[in-house]
Amino acid sequence: MTDINTYEGAPEAEFRDFVALLKPRVMSLVVFTAFVGLWVAPVDVHPFIAFCSVLFIALGGGASGALNMWYDADIDAVMRRTQGRPIPAGRIDGNAALSLGLILAGFAVMMLGLAANWFAAGFLAFTIFFYAVVYTIWLKRWTPQNIVIGGAAGAFPPMIGWACATGGISIESLLMFALIFFWTPPHFWALALFMKSDYHEAQVPMLTVTHGRPATRRHIFAYTLVLAPFAIWLGLTSVGGPIYLAASVVLNALFIHGGWQILRRSEDAALADGYAVERRVFKLSLYYLFLHFVALLAQNLWGTW
């Protein structure tokens, strides 16, 4: 029996553990925004090539997720939210995750180059580098502005999707980038306000830890104000139209209102109702981004300006 018992201390990975390394939930955002970027671009792409392009962009996103989990295994082991991930749970060896991330990254870039074009492939390579090296290795543990700059990595997918179709960059794709880029800080800081102990224990320099919670509330409100003009400006470009513009105005008004409520609250009031407003604004931020991109799709189907 001894040989069987020795195995029980170190559970082997299942296939789904390797899938979990690719952060499927983050991948779903990448897939959706890259798809919209590709769909609204003014160049027609064969549906199968579009499908493959989005798939390879998603795989590139998954590769950076695996690299992130490899490097952040020590932080993940401390934070309650991430303790069950395959590496801290001991199901996958860190080196295996590193290999998977590197191989998948190279594979995704090469295949995107072959399927779409090499500009989009280079862009994908840069995005993976940005997330894995610039954000995860350099910024995350060093500056409270980590998610502001790291948010750029999450904002590139619609630009890559656009580049798959057009082979370049334009004002529309830059504004889609700006939409996600300026949305990321208020989204994550709202989360950090009510998940406070986790980042503190892991010693990740979140704004809530380094500059205090009132400063974080001011930052959230400020970013909702900066975000709004970019979101609405996108509605005035060639991919915009009345549907998008109406949706964007309503969503931005709601988001700014949410930011204002967060700004006006004291920490005591937030503690008293279990961070109800912060949780509500966090949820709103998810709908905010999703509905903006749905509106872009709807506008494209209905007909743009």
Binding site: I4, Y7, P11, E12, A13, E14, F15, R16, F18, V19
Partner: peptide, 13 residues
């Protein structure tokens, strides 16, 4: 053993 099921899931995947 449980371990065989896990290996099979990796192989099939």
């Amino acid at each position: 053993h449980e371990i065989h099921r896990r290996r099979r899931s990796r192989n099939v995947g």
